[in-house]
């Protein structure tokens, strides 16, 4: 048993000690039965044979993967998904960093109020925020009305990559801010003062001192946002219309519209593999630049 040392617990007759494990048991059971098992099941189904008559045939095969890997369409969707992930991550980072810096360097009281502004959007359902964007971005939406009133040409802002990018960035900025603000707050403001006293301008002091020290937060934030972006479903499907296709959307279609469970499952597994691979490459690169600066 892993109860190496009892702390609060008194010496009890052996055997009764494990009563405390009842605390973790229910959550563990729920997660194992309804989270781990379903994903294992997905993995299992991804190597079954598709069939027009049944959900799948219990015949093991790797064809589902082979077909996906050989199909250029799969790769175009994969590429598109990864591109959206990277673009959203980059854009969120650029917009979130000043916010995080400002937040971390605000006095305590103001920080509380600003945190409310950062967190509130997180708690409004994705669907509702997307709806807000639709009102703004439609061809007849507020922005285009404004352009028209100014005598300018209207611009298609929705049902394309731009709309999706705007919507995704909006959703994930708070995650980025939260990740980064913590590390910036851990950087002593006096370090920047010291750099300035040594003759660095405001920008250089920031760039040479604070920024490198906040990199752990930046890396955590970019990883988080990338993972969340490539996984998202609502925003690409509503703001992208039918023009934007990502892996999660394709998985849902394959399974709920084409009823190809093995094919969809294989794509889902492939998605995890690609996402993890992308993260691995990214963390290797980040580790390398981290060491050279």
């Amino acid at each position: 048993m892993s109860v190496a040392e009892a702390t609060v617990a008194p010496a009890r007759p052996a055997g009764r000690v494990s009563g405390r494990h009842l605390l973790i048991l229910p959550a563990l059971a729920v997660l194992v039965v309804f989270f781990v098992a379903p994903y294992l099941n997905l993995l299992l189904i991804s190597v079954m044979t598709p069939s027009p008559r049944a959900a799948y045939l219990r015949v093991l095969t790797l064809d589902n993967y082979a077909r996906l890997v050989r199909d250029p369409f799969t790769w175009s969707v994969v590429w598109h998904t990864m591109w959206l992930g990277m673009a959203t991550t980059a854009l969120s980072l650029v917009l979130a960093y000043p916010l995080a810096y400002h937040l971390a360097r605000s006095p305590r009281g103001a920080r509380g109020a600003l945190m409310v502004l950062v967190i509130s959007p997180l708690l409004v359902g994705v669907l509702i925020r997307t709806y807000g964007w639709m009102i703004l971005l439609q061809d007849t939406g507020l922005i285009n009305q404004l352009l028209r009133a100014l005598g300018l040409r209207t611009v298609p802002l929705m049902y394309n990559n731009l709309g999706v990018l705007i919507g995704l960035t909006h959703v994930f900025i708070p995650f980025m801010v939260l990740s980064i603000a913590g590390t910036i707050q851990g950087v002593d403001p006096e370090l920047e003062l010291a750099a300035r006293s040594l003759g660095a301008g405001a920008w250089r002091a920031f760039w040479r001192v604070t920024f490198p020290l906040s990199l752990p937060g930046v890396i955590a934030g970019t990883v988080l946002v990338f993972v969340l972006t490539v996984s998202s479903y609502v925003i690409p499907s509503l703001l992208g219309g039918f023009t934007v296709l990502t892996i999660p959307i394709l998985v849902v279609r394959t399974i709920t519209e084409l009823f190809n469970w093995p094919g969809g499952s294989a794509l889902a597994i492939l998605f995890f593999a690609i996402t993890l691979g992308a993260l691995w490459v990214y963390l290797r690169l980040a580790g390398r630049t981290g060491r050279t600066t």
Binding site: F34, L42, V251, I255
Partner: peptide, 11 residues
């Protein structure tokens, strides 16, 4: 991804 968890649960 929540959507994949949904798929996995459905299946």
């Amino acid at each position: 991804p929540g959507i994949l968890t949904g798929i996995a649960l459905l299946i």
